[in-house]
């Protein structure tokens, strides 16, 4: 069920520790984290603010290195203390506040990846992008600039921009934060559709526990800083999922389980006087 039939995109995180500014402030952000993500899994990470979720994602994406341990993708080590990962189109990030280029139209954004990688000519890329935009119901805004479309649209375009590439894992850092509940539920449906269609591994960070269970195949709860893996909860709700899931008994049990794990950490974080980190 969680495997989705794909063979690429398995990530293995082994004993990863990350210390920011080792000589100066010495912030221990990740402490000996280990996690296996099988190919094609929808893996959701939850945890209190500032616990190191983004740090972990950035290490996989290649935006910064790690202090010890190893991260490998499909059995190939990509990130070690000696050598940080190179950012590449096999691991594409959907950023917290969005990173669509405002100086390009929706279409130009979506074809960006294939064109700069030299994988397709511009015409081919336009065709591929048109197909993906069509599948996502976005063809009508292809020639709009980013500032002209709503935040919900932007998220979908950003996913389209990622999916048009030949990627192995989609990294999403609280993509639906600061959205209202209605928009969010539309976004969830859309992402579930994309997931069911594309068979890609998804690494999804969120604060929202309902979202975590509704979307994920597994929910990984992290401790407050220094971030460790506290608990991994299997979400054994069959796919394709729809809103009915939210009314089911199993969903409520799972939610209770995650809530207990997270609340304990949130309280600790609060008592440690952690400031709210974005």
């Amino acid at each position: 069920m969680s495997n989705n039939g794909s063979t690429v995109g398995s990530v293995s995180i082994r004993n990863v520790t990350k210390i920011f500014d080792p000589e100066g402030a010495h912030v221990l952000a990740l402490d000996n984290c280990s996690l296996e993500i099988p190919a094609g899994e929808f893996c959701v990470i939850v945890g209190p603010s500032g616990c190191g979720k983004t740090t972990l994602l950035n290490a996989i994406a290649g935006f910064h290195g790690i202090s010890s341990g190893e991260i490998s993708l499909d059995g190939v080590p990509i990130c070690t203390p000696e050598k940080m990962a190179e950012p590449g189109a096999d691991r594409i990030v959907v950023f917290q506040n969005g990173a669509l280029f405002p100086w390009y139209t929706v279409m130009e954004n979506v074809i960006y990846g294939p064109v700069v990688q030299g994988k397709m000519t511009e015409a081919e890329a336009r065709q591929a992008a048109g197909k993906i935009l069509g599948e996502m119901g976005l063809q009508g805004i292809a020639n709009c600039y980013i500032n002209e479309i709503s935040s919900g649209m932007r998220r979908r375009v950003e996913i389209a921009r990622a999916m048009v590439n030949d990627l192995k894992i989609l990294l999403m850092d609280e993509p639906y934060r600061a959205m209202d509940a209605l928009t969010k539920s539309v976004m969830h449906k859309h992402l579930l559709d994309v997931y069911d269609r594309a068979h890609k591994t998804i690494f999804f960070i969120t604060h929202d526990l309902e979202e975590a269970i509704y979307l994920g195949s597994r929910v990984v709860v992290m401790t407050t800083r220094p971030g460790r893996i506290k608990k991994v909860i299997d979400v054994d709700i069959p796919r394709p999922r729809d809103l009915q899931v939210l009314a089911s008994e199993r969903y409520r049990e799972l939610k209770m389980e995650v809530l207990e794990a997270v609340q304990e950490e949130a309280r600790k974080a609060f008592e440690a006087g952690e400031r709210e980190f974005a």
């Binding site: 500014d21 000589e23 100066g24 402030a25 010495h26 912030v27």
Partner: peptide, 10 residues
Amino acid sequence: RNKNSNSLGK
């Protein structure tokens, strides 16, 4: 203390 050493370091 962290903050202090941080700003000194900076």
